[in-house]
Computed example of a mutant assay.
Amino acid sequence: MRLRTTAAAFLASLALVLPTAGQSLAADPHHDGLGVLYYRFTDGDEEDRTGQIRPGDNDTCYQLTHAQRHPAFAVKNDTESVAVIFRDGHCGGQSEETLRPGERAYNLNARSVLFKPAHEHHGHQDDDWDDDH
């Protein structure tokens, strides 16, 4: 009997928490992750198809799911991060292309992508620049 009471109390408290958690996620602008990376690939019937991934975090390798058998030939980076594109399915070897947010690339053989924060890829900045002005 005590187990039923404990289970009922747990379910009642869970029912109170779940709607609140859903609302807080909807209010959080970052709940959608980094954005969307679109890619074009050819399927087994030689038809061009579009795939997409919605990466949740930087510094993580993502496979272009539909492009493992036939690599993606075009990529559009609609994320807030830099997308480092790889021919290998596990972000290994030399990168094939690096796309800043909003950039596109064509004529690729892409199977995976690694996202990096955009602020890490601004190039070399002269530390003494402010001293000269």
Rank of each mutant, 00 (worst) to 15 (best):
L99E: 08
Y38D: 03
T6D: 07
N58W: 07
G44E: 15
S95Q: 10
W129N: 03
R54M: 12
G56A: 11
A72I: 09
V113S: 00
V75W: 02
V82R: 07
D43T: 00
L99S: 03
K76G: 00
A12V: 09
W129I: 07
G35A: 04
E96H: 12
G56W: 13
D32N: 11
L14M: 15
G33N: 02
G56I: 08
P101K: 10
D48F: 05
D48Y: 08
L108E: 01
H119S: 15
H31V: 06
H66M: 06
N58E: 05
G123K: 02
A110K: 09
T98I: 11
H133T: 01
P19W: 11
E103T: 03
P101Q: 08
R100D: 13
T20S: 14
H121N: 14
A72S: 07
Y39V: 01
R87N: 13
A9G: 00
W129S: 05
A21P: 12
G51K: 02
A74R: 07
Y62R: 03
A105G: 01
R111Q: 15
D32R: 08
D78K: 10
E80C: 09
L18F: 15
E120T: 10
P117V: 02
L114F: 09
Y39M: 05
L37I: 07
D127G: 03
L16H: 12
G89K: 11
V75K: 00
V36K: 03
N58H: 13
P19E: 10
R4K: 14
E97A: 15
N77L: 05
D32L: 07
A118H: 07
C91H: 03
R87K: 15
D45C: 04
G93R: 03
G93D: 05
A74Q: 11
G44H: 13
T98E: 06
D59H: 09
H30L: 13
R69V: 15
G123S: 01
Y39L: 02
R54K: 14
V82M: 03
D128T: 11
D127R: 08
L37T: 07
A67G: 06
A21C: 14
L108T: 00
D88R: 12
L37D: 01
H119I: 09
D128Q: 05
Y39I: 02
T50S: 04
L34T: 03
G102S: 01
D127A: 13
S24E: 10
A15D: 14
D132E: 09
S81T: 06
Q23N: 08
A83I: 04
V75M: 02
A118P: 07
E97Q: 15
S24N: 12
E80R: 13
D130A: 09
L99P: 05
H90G: 11
V113K: 03
D126C: 11
A118S: 13
A7P: 12
L114M: 05
E103P: 01
L25R: 05
S112W: 04
I85A: 01
A8N: 14
D126A: 05
A8E: 07
A67T: 08
H31Y: 05
F115P: 04
P101V: 04
A12N: 02
V36F: 05
D78M: 10
T65M: 08
L16D: 12
